[in-house]
């Protein structure tokens, strides 16, 4: 079995079979991280470059740990300390990296489509670790893995996604993935944060959190990007918290077995109240654990042999 593609650029182009292959493989990889010696020799001699043009702790560390547990050599390039600050273009940086012959390049960039440019240009496999407001496929895969392992299925579940839908690549990738897998997705946020055509993606859209989370099996809270407060997309963090935070008052509207997710980093007391984030329904840290397994699965499935 192998992913039928050189690159992983988005969930949109993945088939249900490919998603299931990644999730099944990732479940088997979970065990490696529980061993005393958390390392297998599978990717010995392979090189994984993490090229991050945006700050990231969780995703970059997760890819790095995934690579290391598979015995690959992982190299991190963060743009604040690299030649990018000297004015080198993305394409020149990529061509130089290619000349050093890595096997996989993981890229995060603030511009949507940056990974696609590299994929067309380089012979290496490219993994999109987040491009602008476009896609964040590995996050959606780890979210789907977490839902599937906790609920036993994805199909037929009601998933509510709440927050800044318009600027969220996490929301976009999850909407693509969850819909493909047969879940019903509803979204909620201030009108300025809901894309006009969102219902064309097959979701129900609300401007009140209470409506979106009613009877939900899963609630996915998005990080509110506090730096956007200045851009007058919403009046104030306080007001946002008042209308769109998930807390002990509104959570009872959801299903009794509801589980709470958040891609991190959290703004405690803004989009999610601490007693919910740390409460028994929270599976936020399971998401992080599963993230390593999903990335191990992808590195495993995307390396080896010459591409057909």
């Amino acid at each position: 079995m192998k992913l039928k593609r050189k690159d992983l650029l988005g969930i949109q182009e993945l088939s249900v079979e490919e998603i299931n292959l990644v999730l099944d493989t990732a479940e088997s990889f979970l065990e490696v991280s529980t061993r005393e010696i958390k390392k297998v020799p599978t990717l010995r001699g392979k090189t994984v470059v993490n090229l991050f043009y945006e700050p990231s702790t969780r995703t970059r560390t997760s890819f790095e740990i995934a690579g290391k547990r598979l015995s690959a050599d992982t190299i991190n390039i963060s743009t604040s300390t690299s030649s990018v600050v000297k004015g080198e273009t993305l394409i020149d940086t990529a061509k130089n990296l290619e000349a050093m012959n890595p096997d996989i390049i993981v890229i995060r960039h603030s511009a949507a489509g940056a990974p696609h440019i590299l994929a067309g240009l380089l012979r290496q496999s490219i993994i999109n670790a987040g491009d602008g407001a476009h896609e964040h496929p590995t996050q959606a895969l780890l979210d789907m893995m977490t839902i599937r392992s906790k609920k036993g299925r994805i199909a037929g579940l009601h998933v509510a996604i709440v927050g800044d839908i318009a600027h969220s690549r996490v929301a976009r990738s999850n909407i693509h993935g969850l819909s493909k897998m047969g879940a019903h997705v509803s979204v909620a946020g201030p009108a300025t944060m809901i894309p006009r055509d969102i219902e064309k993606m097959g979701v129900r859209s609300y401007t009140r959190i209470e409506e979106a989370i009613r009877d939900a099996d899963i609630i996915m809270m998005l990080r509110i990007q506090t730096e956007r407060e200045r851009q007058s997309i919403f009046p104030s963090l306080r007001e946002y918290a008042q209308f769109f935070s998930l807390n002990s008052r509104n959570i009872d509207l959801a299903s009794k077995e509801v589980l709470i997710m958040h891609p991190g980093p959290m703004n405690r007391g803004v989009e999610i109240s601490p007693e919910i984030a740390d409460g028994p329904r929270s599976i936020i840290l399971d998401q992080v654990t599963n993230g390593v397994a999903v990335r191990m699965a992808l590195l495993y499935l995307m390396t080896g042999g010459s591409n057909p």
Binding site: M1, K2, V40, T42, L301, G304, S306
Partner: peptide, 23 residues
Amino acid sequence: LDITLYRDDLLTSHRKPLLGKTD
């Protein structure tokens, strides 16, 4: 025991064997 991750032909073969559970 699933031995897939320890195989000596992983990096040369085109297809990836399906990974089974180790417990």
